[in-house]
């Protein structure tokens, strides 16, 4: 009797496991962007041009307890004169439903190419920023953020 019970529950467990695999395969998951999507988006915006590191600083927490509000702070070293200023900064997230997060358009009137806001992070992932100067230079920076509780609905 005992043996029968055991084998029955084992069979049941196997059956349930099979069902859950089938359900997982059929349920459309919330689609997240992949690192490739971010690369494609970046290629679309910057035409695959070479990017340097250094002048662009992307400041984010290493660990975000709440993925709904993660502070992000961007600063680019630049004279911010009519002749040489930071035209734009875009931010991309490798593990959110959409690869692009924001694009800033700066002018020499800003005096400083820096800005901060709060963003959503659905899961632990890399955040990438790209700055473009008026002279055509591109700079990039990357930051990995570990997320305890994800944002982005679901």
């Amino acid at each position: 009797m005992m043996l029968f019970e055991q084998s029955r529950s084992r069979r049941e467990a196997m059956r349930l496991a099979a069902i859950s695999v089938a359900v997982a395969a059929l349920t459309p998951r919330l689609a997240f962007a992949k690192p490739e999507d971010v690369k494609a988006e970046m290629d679309k915006l910057y035409g695959g041009k070479e990017m340097a590191t250094g002048k662009l600083k992307l400041d984010m927490p290493e660990i975000a307890e709440n993925g709904l509000v993660v502070p992000i702070n961007i600063e680019v070293e630049s004279p911010m004169t009519e002749a040489d200023y930071v035209k734009s900064v875009s931010v991309f997230a490798e593990g959110n439903p959409f690869p692009r997060v924001l694009t800033y358009h700066f002018t020499p009137a800003c005096g400083r190419a820096a800005a901060s806001l709060r963003m959503r992070l659905a899961q632990t992932q890399n955040v990438i920023a790209v700055a473009e100067t008026s002279t055509g230079q591109l700079y990039t920076a990357k930051s990995e953020v570990k997320v305890t509780i994800g944002g982005c609905g679901g």
Partner: peptide
């Protein structure tokens, strides 16, 4: 005169 502009996508809080 526009001095700063931001385009936001759904990842903004």
């Amino acid at each position: 005169k526009v001095v700063f502009e931001a385009e936001w996508f759904p990842s903004v809080s």
